[in-house]
Each structure stands twice: as structure tokens, then as C-alpha cells.
Amino acid sequence: MIAALLRLELRRTRLLVGWLLLLVVAYSAILAIVYPAIRANAANLDLSMKAYPKDFMAAFGMEASLSDPGVYYTADIGILLWPVVAAIAGIALATRPTAVDTERGWIETPMSGHLSRVAYALVSVVVQALTLAVLSVATVGAFVGVGALVGANLNAGPFALAAFAAWLFGCAIASVAMLIGVATLNRGVAAGITAGGLIVMYVFRIVGTVQPDLGWLANLSAFRYLYPTHIIDMGTLPWDEVLGFAVLTIAAWGIAVALFRQRDLVA
């Protein structure tokens, strides 16, 4: 019964995941192909980057030379492509079985059997986590894999940690979206609040970085934490931050499931 629902939910996810996989693999592969040229021309690039204010460049992930694999990945993927992909997948998947299926009435079909509400909601959580894992591994894997083919010599270990951090970041987005989706049973509201929050935090990080006297704003931004450059350069995970994100994610999912168990399933 749970397996049947899980299979169906994964099947419903195919199209979205297919398109997003195409996007992330193509984008990451192109960046990997370009990387050797970036590295070969690092001196010229660094010279041209000096024309811009340092804080301004740092605000967009370029704290150091683009020839640095961590900086290159972070500026182009870690804080650019991945948050967008994670938000699209996380919000879409986290709000579908609860808010959308309640609005459309489909929820009455799987829920008319023996399935408990908790099991139903947990299946949704598993689908979110699995999908985001596939996407994060594909994003980083395409970058590292294609990089290996073109002689970029990227160290797979630190990038695997970056993939884990990206997955956790995506799960945090999905869990918050699910919580709001269950509370409102309205995908539009859940998507708006979640995406709006991400945009605000992105702006906070930029403003907080460019304006040192507003540095405290950057501390309010999720983008400041689990920062890919640090993970890749250091080759280790910031465990305090991992724990913080894990607690936030599990709490949001847990509250969403508990709320789903109690609330009226009528949009």
C-alpha cells in the first residue's frame, strides 16, 4: 500500500525531475568544460576582476580567483543554479500531495484506502528527499564527471560533501514549503512565501556583504551557511551548520506531518 503510493508519487515526479536533470546536467557539464580554460587564463581573469569592488564580487560568490574550484563552483552553481533548482523541485514536490491534491480532490483516492495520514505525508517526505538527492548528485556529479573528462582534475571528495550540503539546503526549502502547504492547503501561498523568503535572504546576503555596516543582514540569510566554497576548499563539512539545517528540516517536516494528521482535508 505504501509502496504503491511511493511508486505512483515517484512516477508523477518523472517529468519535473527529467527536465530539471536535463538543465542541471547540461549547465554543470558546460561549466566543467569551460573550467580548464578559466584556469589557464586565471591571471588575466583575476586582473579583470580587480576592476570591480571586492565586496561586490564577494556578494556573488567570487571572494577569490575563479580558478579556485570552490569559488568557481559556488559562484556559478552553488549559490546560483542550485537554489533555483532546489526551490522549484522542493516547492513543487512538497506542496503537491498535500495542498494541490487536496485542492483537486485526488487526495480522496489514495486516502480512501487503509493508509494513515501520517504514512501518506511521510511518503511525500521520502519523495522530496529522494528527488533532491538525485538532483544534487546529478548537479555536482555532472560537474566533477565532465571535469574529469576534460582534464579539470576536480577533487571528488570535497565535491561529494558539497553535494550533501546542497541536498540538505534543498530539503530545508522543501520542508518549509511542505509546512506552509499543509497549513494553508494552497500551493500558491506556500510557493509565494517560500520563494519570497529565499529571495529576501539572497538579497540580505548581497546587501550584508556589500555594506559592511549591514553585515548582520547576511547572518539572517540561509545562503550564508553551508557555503560551498568553504566546504570544497576545506574538504570538510561545517558540522554546526549541518546540524542546524538538519534540525530545521526535520522540525519543519515533523510539524507538517503532525499538522496534516489533524487538519481538515478540504481546500
Binding site: M1, G105, W106, T109, S112, H114
Partner: peptide
Amino acid sequence: SGEPAYLGELTAEETLRFMCRVR
């Protein structure tokens, strides 16, 4: 249900098989 809402991309067979498994 009064207004049965099905997934348009599934066939009736897939839908009914799913319902059988759920029950």
C-alpha cells in the same frame, strides 16, 4: 467521491490497479 478527481496522465487500468494496491 462526488467529483472523482483522477490523474489525467494515468489510464483507467493504472488508476484501478493503484486503487487495488491501496486497498
